[in-house]
Amino acid sequence: MSITYLEAIREAQARALAEDPRVFIYGQDVGAFGGAFKATKNLAEEFPGRVIDSPISEDAIIGLAIGAAIDGMRPIIEMQFADFSSVGFNQVINQAATLYWRTQVPCPVTIRLPAGGTSGSGPFHSQNMEAIYAHYPGLVVMTPATVEDAYHMLLEAVAIDDPVIFCEHKYLYYHLKADKLPADAMPTGKARIAREGRDLTIVAYSAMVHEALAVAEELASEGTEIEVVDLRSVKPLDTDTVMASVARTGRLLCVGEAWPWGGVTAEVMARVAGEGFGLLDAPPQRLNAKDTPVPYHPNLWAAHRPTARSIATAARNLLGL
């Protein structure tokens, strides 16, 4: 028996619906059809009237969730693709994110963003939007990299009183499997040491954690020990764990699948350079997607985002190998 990252997301929603009558799911094709990726498969049947198809209106969908949250509900919203959340962006950043600060009334909405690139998906079904949401005060931004985190962090997202942007990576949906659902997990806000090492810290999140782990495995055979830090959530960003790792290794490579300008990797670099400059034995480096829209063709896509190969090259350069 094994469970995929996608099934974990489905199971977390089933559990949230079962345990909390305030929870409902609203989104495009989430009802009887079970969602574009089947993340809500059979939930409409199991929880009648609580898993509901919406019109194609991201602004109105997120606005509805905010109103329901004000009224005491715990809505889970599925954006069919993270990319489409741009249409509902205003509701997220101006309405949901400001509500608590303006009125002291919390806004417990969970917005699921099926994010990240998969082969052949092109410019409008591949985006990573964590940085742009993390930029705004008043939002929690989760980027789970494991089946365990997909399950527990989604449950936590529903329980949190603040709006949560839940970035679930589509590449991990089917590729990632665990033996069973975990009984417990680390709390959001705490980064995880995914692999210990003494020579170089690679900070990553979401699908890039697995690329980084592959590089660590590859370089271990050459006698280099890479430490991989999985951020888990990019906001809050666990600077302490990153800094402690850099203190051990003296070298930092930060990897993100998103675009480079002003993103999560830039934030990590700024914090380490600003607060931990003396810990560094070499200039910190980062690796991101190319600064173009995400290409369609697999040949281009494979070169557009960081991969184990490009990360390994960057790691070797940083280590002077």
């Binding site: 997120i62 109103g67 005491g72 509701q91």
Partner: peptide
């Protein structure tokens, strides 16, 4: 954007 929020409260009720 406020109209959808009203919708949400009515939907929740």
């Amino acid at each position: 954007a406020m109209i959808a929020v009203v919708n949400g409260i009515l939907f929740a009720r």
